[in-house]
Write a protein that binds this DNA or RNA. Structure first.
Lengths: 348, 348
DNA sequence: TTGTACGCGTTATCAT
DNA sequence: ATGATAACGCGTACAA
């Protein structure tokens, strides 16, 4: 590899001058600059990124932590794909590199190692869950002064950096949509409670139902035959179909907390002879690609995952970049949007 | 950050000894080793990865190049997700890190820069296309002695490292499946020709048809109403539906080169009143998650993308790791498998 | 405007 | 079995 030294010799200047030219710092004679650039070109010189980062005492990497999701082979979901793309675009724009960290099932040594060994300057954590173990790890990161940002997950009572979507309102508009179409007995198929979005969705559902006067027992009352819980997998939606079918005479519509479950649910109900869009209305969540290809196409709440990833990267990098306003943490909440298809039937 | 020097002082040894302990090289007294480890623990010392890589004159990163795919937001496909997961697992196992490189639409400066600046020691290229521009870039990489590996793409006449699937046989078994079920007039909806797998699939289709005596005009004859071409997007499959429907009286079945097109095709045909599994048989390719959720569930050819990624990473890293058998390039071809669902009807 | 000189935290070589 | 010490390629304070 050709080094700075060789360029300096060929150009007849010192190594420092070569560095200045390549970093555009300090005043320099135009002629000198040209001479250096020319020498660099003839020698095909390219600064060594590792050495640069070493000298700058930083890695130049933004880490992205992906959760371990058994069976799903991790990326197979719309969610991660979109966020990653958003992060990738922003990271590139800012001249950073993107280091991927796939968590293992066991994972005794966790992502704090990435910081300890200084492989990353900051990181974005996807798919975090509200468990004591996770929370403790995040607190350790914070104490260590390691900049990180959560995406699509909120920790109650903590002031971590985070970019979340307004899932409460998202769910509210989904349920309102069902209510507006005349459905009264709207069931809710929620996902795993360790994700904050599940709690948010429940709140949104409750608010819509309450406003419609459909929570008779007061604010907290929730008829058991209207609340179901899966784990966001298609299979769990499929399983819920059996339970929901048992209460078919008390249910007009189902709001599912994500598309995968909604799809499993529709499949399961169809096998039992109950058709979404005909016998009941179904609304999903995420507006994933799959929502377009189901039969009937699934009405769903769109979440701007791509933008969320991009936003998280931007905010985080501007902090460590030493920009202004680097004080305190940030909590961003982006808006969702209902995309109407045919799973609620065609009548207006 | 605590450095090696401090550990050495606390342990009462030289810096070199600390390094030896942490790298497990050379002989050392057990007692010394323990003393060093203890000192490291009390000080919470962790070797600086950047400095290590700098001193070792390597980056410790495996680069993964992802193509620019407009609209699809890149990761939204099963294909990349699976391969990336496979690479990630292997990379971790080998103690490397995974650097993601998302290509831009314009991309004047290409991935060769990653090597020039020595950010990666090797890289895996996904979604390469058989275009003059791409080929030229790959040749430049090769000339520069930069280790790389292609996944799911073959360049005729070149001996690049590659891990591919046997798409010819995969297509053969798909078409054979249709023929075995009694369909004679099997159409083929292929994808973009710049991917080698498209050519392979065409060969497989041809062989099966020829063996069944269904290529009357000789080896190369292909009835125009039996061959269609999309670009692997759902939309292109949807568009093909119209053309195929026009020839509905000359077609019993369609083999689509991927699931996305198959899904679009089924949607389009349904809108025209032609139902897959009832009026015609359809087989897809990739066995993506979506294949399970369509109506009817889609019979499809499964490709072990996860394993392909893992294999590519393993082979590549063992080369640069200086293992034995580092001579020459490698070309691996993995097997595919037909997964039967209901899109070809239920009759045996 | 440019050069000198040092430091960054390791690895690795050569003594001892 | 362990200790000095020279790289490694670059950034940068300071001197000129």
């Amino acid at each position: 590899m050709v080094t700075r030294k060789e360029v300096a010799e060929l150009a007849g200047v010192s190594e420092a001058t070569v560095s200045r030219v390549f970093n555009g710092v300090g005043p320099m004679k135009e002629e000198t600059k040209q001479r250096v650039l020319e020498a660099a070109k003839t020698l095909n010189y390219h600064p060594n990124a590792i050495a640069q980062n070493f000298a700058r005492r930083r890695s130049g990497n933004l880490g992205v932590v992906l959760p371990y999701v058994p069976k799903v082979h991790l990326f197979s979901t719309y969610f991660f794909s979109e966020i990653l793309s958003g992060i990738g675009a922003k990271v590139k724009e800012k001249g950073y590199d993107l280091l991927l960290l796939l968590r293992s099932p066991d994972e005794e040594s966790d992502y704090i190692d990435m910081f300890r060994s200084q492989k990353v300057d900051a990181c974005i954590i996807l798919g975090a869950t509200d468990t004591p173990r996770e929370l403790e790890q995040l607190k350790r990161l914070e104490e260590g002064g390691h900049p990180f940002c959560l995406v699509n997950q909120h920790f109650r009572g903590e002031q971590f950096n985070e970019v979340d979507a307004d899932h409460k309102t998202g769910s509210y508009i989904a349920v309102r949509h069902l209510l507006d179409r005349g459905h009264r007995r709207v069931a809710f198929l929620n996902g795993s409670p360790q994700f904050s979005s599940s709690g948010d969705r429940l709140e949104g559902y409750r608010q819509a139902m309450r406003e419609a006067g459909l929570l008779p027992g007061g604010m907290d009352a929730l008829s058991p035959h209207l609340y179901y819980e899966g784990n966001y997998s298609r299979t769990s939606g499929y399983r819920a179909a059996a339970q929901i079918y048992e209460h078919r005479h008390e249910i007009d519509a189902v709001f599912a907390a994500n598309d995968r479950m909604a799809i499993g649910l529709m499949q399961g109900l169809r096998e039992l002879g109950w058709e979404a869009g005909r016998d009941l209305a179904v609304v999903g969540y995420d507006n994933s690609d799959a929502a377009r290809v189901t039969d009937p196409p699934l009405t769903s709440v769109a979440v701007p995952f791509y933008e969320m990833g991009s936003l998280a990267a931007e905010k985080l990098l501007s902090r460590i970049g030493g920009d202004a306003a680097s004080k305190g943490t940030f909590q961003v909440k982006v808006d969702t949007e209902l995309v109407i298809r045919q799973s609620c039937g065609r009548r207006s």
